[in-house]
């Protein structure tokens, strides 16, 4: 049987490189969803991973770090929050 392809649509999916059932500890929304102030997931609402290995929506974390009361500490482990450098990100 010969089949002639008239048209085709490419579909792709993506998700952040974190455990699938992990949520942002600040807003409690799944990482593949957005922080509460964004509408669409993706590069506009990235996640941020600390040297302590705790991750958050970037917007959620920045809002926390802006506050004086945060003293620059990770909301999870209270160590000074430092972003994991790009070369240090372990990709799987």
């Amino acid at each position: 049987m010969k089949v002639r392809i008239k048209e085709w649509n490419a579909v792709s999916i993506w998700h952040w490189n974190v455990s699938e059932d992990e949520v942002c500890g600040i807003c409690r929304v799944h990482f593949d969803g957005t922080c509460p102030s964004c509408k669409y997931p993706g590069d506009d609402c990235p996640i941020i991973i600390g040297k302590c290995n705790h991750s958050f929506h970037m917007h959620c974390l920045l809002k926390w770090l802006e506050l004086e009361t945060s003293r620059g500490l990770c909301p999870m482990c209270r160590q000074p929050f430092q972003t994991l450098g790009e070369d240090e990100v372990i990709t799987t």
Binding site: V29, H30, D32, G33, C38, K39
Partner: peptide
């Protein structure tokens, strides 16, 4: 993702 966006 669609659901999350929809919720938003």
């Amino acid at each position: 993702q669609a659901k999350a966006a929809g919720e938003g």
